[in-house]
Simulated assay, not measured.
Amino acid sequence: MKYIKFKNYEYQVPIGKIVCVGRNYAAHAKELGNEVPEFPVIFLKAASNVIYSGEAVIHPKYSNNLHHEVELVLYIGDTIKNVNEEEAEKAIYGYAVGLDMTLRDLQFEFMKKGDPWTLAKSFDTSAVLSDFILKEDYKLRGDENIILKVNDSIRQNSSIKNMMFSPSKIVKYISEKMTLEKGDLIFTGTPEGVGRVVPGDKIFAEIENVGSLETYIVE
């Protein structure tokens, strides 16, 4: 079982489902040749995909194009269904930095066939997490900088203000489609600048005032 780890607190919460949002930054959607969606694109990762800062991402042998995607991650602390935006905001208990590692070659292949993205998004070590900071200790301003470096070279550098759907809107939308429960995590999408990583690469990701993580790619 994988657990949510909290900054400055020793208790842990089991991770439930991981709901991910695609194409939430217009520039990222455009860089991959995708249309900007009217509503969030939703997919899932398994809790077993999770690793933590300092651990290694294992490059699957069946892919030749592993991409990094840095994201703001939300921790849901209440069970909610069909909530309004104010209730959605209250259900967000904390934040973390996350990496949605993606097998881009498989994803493009699946998209051409009209198949689900699951095997391109949900594989061992595909979800990297920092410790979570609780909202009671820090509440988002909404304009925090979000960056990712590969081997000390900046690849992604944006602000969460560029998200098309805010955290509360995302939670509201998902709650209309499925029940969200304590321990569920929501990856809120990545800004432009995604790119390939290979074994030996080192990744550093950070969101201003939220946290940071480090990982590296191995075969």
Rank of each mutant, 00 (worst) to 15 (best):
I154A: 02
V194S: 12
H67S: 05
C20L: 09
D152E: 15
H67D: 13
S53C: 04
I15W: 09
F39H: 12
V171M: 03
L213P: 06
T215I: 09
E219Q: 06
M111D: 11
E136S: 12
Y9T: 04
D131A: 10
E176T: 14
I76A: 07
V70C: 01
I51E: 08
E206L: 06
S166P: 08
V198N: 12
D124Y: 05
G16S: 09
Y25C: 04
I15E: 09
H67P: 01
I18V: 14
I170E: 08
A47D: 15
Y62H: 14
I203G: 00
N24C: 11
V41S: 03
G189E: 07
K112H: 09
K149Q: 14
C20D: 03
K5M: 03
N65R: 11
L129I: 07
Y138C: 07
N151R: 11
N157D: 14
K139W: 02
Y25G: 04
L99W: 01
V50F: 11
Y95D: 00
H68F: 11
F108M: 14
L185E: 07
V97L: 04
F204N: 04
D115K: 12
Y173S: 01
I92M: 03
T79E: 15
E219I: 01
P14M: 12
L66S: 00
P167R: 06
T179L: 02
